[in-house]
């Protein structure tokens, strides 16, 4: 849950520029919301790499891993699993 909370805060504050929790559902697609530009993906990757000490490989840079809070949480959970 801590991961989800942190990610929600990060996305709301840095891409939606709001603290209104209702502005983002966990399943919402960042692409469909139009909140991420072509370098925005890189920013998200930098953030999760730094925050969770993981390394995102080239073939992992896909919407299935990165395009919603739920996808990000699942991806980070998988990557940080022992």
């Amino acid at each position: 849950m801590a991961v989800k909370k942190k990610l929600r805060e990060y996305i709301l504050e840095n891409y939606l520029f709001t603290d209104d929790q209702t502005a983002l559902n966990n399943a919402d697609s960042f692409l469909d919301l139009g909140i991420i530009d072509s370098t925005g993906i890189m920013e998200v990757i930098f953030f999760i790499e730094e925050e969770y000490g993981i390394s995102v490989e080239d073939d992992e840079m896909i919407p299935e891993n990165l395009d919603s809070i739920d996808n990000l949480v699942a991806f980070i959970t998988k990557k940080t699993a022992p």
């Binding site: 520029f17 530009d37 953030f47």
Partner: peptide, 21 residues
């Protein structure tokens, strides 16, 4: 919108605003 701009400035301040947008 002051609140939104403040958040953008905060992002810029910490070096997180690297995108063109």
């Amino acid at each position: 919108n002051p609140k939104r701009v403040t958040m953008l400035a905060k992002k810029a301040r910490r070096g997180g605003a690297i995108g063109q947008k």
